[in-house]
Design a binder for these strands. Structure first.
Lengths: 214, 214
DNA sequence: TGGTGTCAAGGACAAATGTCTTACTATTCA
DNA sequence: TGAATAGTAAGACATTTGTCCTTGACACCA
C-alpha cells in the first residue's frame, strides 16, 4: 500500500549514471516536494523515503491519493497534460531523496528514450487502474471492509503514517477510523499494541472475514 | 460529464483512412463492448454513441467510472499493463459505432506513430487526473454538492442515463439520489419536468450555491 | 511542584445514507 | 377488460458516519 516501482528506479539510476542531466536532491521530513497550484516545471523520481500525495479541497479538507516510495514518479501528469498547476501536494513523511528531472530533460527522455517512454505509459496505466479500483471499492463497500483491506495490505500500520493521514486516505474522520478499529479489536481480529499501533491478532480470521467480500 | 476526445477521434479517422488495419463495428443498445474478467485482445475507439464504463464488485453492486462518447478509448489500460483481464465492463447505452484496433495494431501504432504514442500518454494522464479529482471530491464533500456539480456540468440529465446509472456513478442508492434531488427542488434550485427529468430552474442560485464550495 | 497547552481517544448526539416496504403508474397479455 | 408485472417514488426505520465536547495522558516550563 506504500507504492514502489523497481523498474522505474533501475531505469532512472542508469540514466543518472550515464548523463549529467539528472541530479539528486534531499528533502526534510514535513517538506513539500511539489505544492498544489504551483507551476509545474520539474518531475521527481523517489530514490529513498516515503511521501504522501494529497489533494486539499476548498473547504480545507485533505484527501490522500497515495503513499509512495522508491521508484514512484512525481509531477509527470501535469507536464504530460500541459497544465499550469500541480493538482496535488507531495509531502515528505520521512527524510527523502529524489532524482530531479527538469521539464526539458523529461520531454527529451520521452521522445528519445523508448524504454522510458514505454515505462511512463505503463506507470500511468497502472495508476489509472489502481485509482479506479480503489475509488470503486471505497464507494461500494462499508468502511469496515476498506479498513480490513488496508490492514491486510499493510500487515501493520507504518510508523510514519499517522491516523489522520490514514483517515484522509480512507476519506473519513479519525473518529470513524477509531470506531472501526475498536470494532475489529472487539471481534478479536486485531490488537492495539503498546505504541498505539495495530497488529493482526487472528490472521486466519482476518483473511476469512476479507474473503467474504472478495 | 459525458467524456469526448476530438483529437483522438481525428487521429483515428486519419489512420482508418490511410490503412486497412482499423475497421468499424456496430453494437446495439445494451450490448457489452468489453466485459470485466474477459481476456483483453482489442482496443476500441468510439466513433459515435454513448457508453457506460463500470466495475462490478463481488457483492454485485456496480460503480460507474464514466460515461463516454466520440474519441474515447476502450481497453488500452489492460493492454499497456499486460493484464489478462479487463477490469471494467463497457456497455452501449445507445447504438454504438466503434473503431476496432487489434492488439498487434495497437502495439504497432504505439511504437511507430509518434503522434499516437504521445496522444495515448496525454489521454492516460488526463484520465488519471480526472479520476483522482473526482475520487477526492466524492469522498470529501457531502452528496448534495456532488449532485449539484453533476447538474452544473450536465445542464440536465441525459435521456440515455437512467437514475440507477447516475446513482451508481455517485456511489449511492437511487433512494439517496431522489432525496437529494427533492431537496434541490424544495430549495427552488431545480424543477422536475414532465419526462421525469430534472432541469435547472434557478441558474444563478445554483451557481451561487456551488461557488460556496469551490 | 503545579500550571498550562497539546493531542489522542471516546461518549453523546446529530446528520446522512441505506434497507425494506408499500403505493402508484404504466404496460403487457390472456 | 382485468390480472400480472415491472419500474419508479417515497415513507419509516435502521445503520453508518460526522460533529462536538469531555477526559486523560504527557510534555514543557515558570
Amino acid at each position: 500500500m506504500i507504492k514502489t516501482n523497481l523498474k522505474v528506479l533501475q531505469l532512472i539510476e542508469k540514466i543518472a549514471r550515464d548523463t549529467a542531466n539528472v541530479i539528486l536532491k534531499t528533502f526534510k521530513k514535513g517538506e513539500y516536494i511539489v505544492q498544489q497550484n504551483e507551476k509545474p516545471k520539474i518531475v521527481y523520481i523517489i530514490k529513498k523515503g516515503i511521501t504522501k500525495c494529497f489533494i486539499t479541497e476548498e473547504n480545507g479538507k485533505d484527501y490522500v491519493l497515495d503513499f509512495s516510495s522508491a521508484g514512484e514518479i512525481i509531477g509527470e501528469v501535469e507536464l504530460l497534460t500541459h497544465k499550469d498547476q500541480y493538482f496535488s501536494t507531495i509531502e515528505a513523511l520521512t527524510i527523502l531523496e529524489v532524482y530531479v528531472i527538469p521539464k526539458v530533460v523529461f520531454d527529451q527522455l520521452n521522445n528519445e528514450d523508448n524504454d522510458f517512454n514505454m515505462l511512463i505509459k505503463e506507470v500511468l496505466a497502472h495508476r489509472l487502474m489502481n485509482t479506479s479500483k480503489r475509488s470503486s471499492y471505497q464507494q461500494i463497500y462499508p468502511l469496515l471492509y476498506s479498513v480490513l483491506k488496508i490492514i491486510y495490505d499493510f500487515g501493520q500500520l507504518d510508523e510514519h503514517i499517522s491516523k489522520q493521514d490514514l483517515a484522509n486516505y480512507l476519506g473519513i474522520t479519525v473518529r470513524s477510523l477509531n470506531r472501526t478499529l475498536q470494532e475489529l479489536v472487539d471481534k478479536k481480529i486485531i490488537t492495539i499494541n503498546e505504541v498505539d499501533n495495530f497488529e493482526i491478532k487472528n490472521a486466519p480470521l482476518l483473511i476469512k472475514t476479507i474473503e467474504q467480500f472478495y
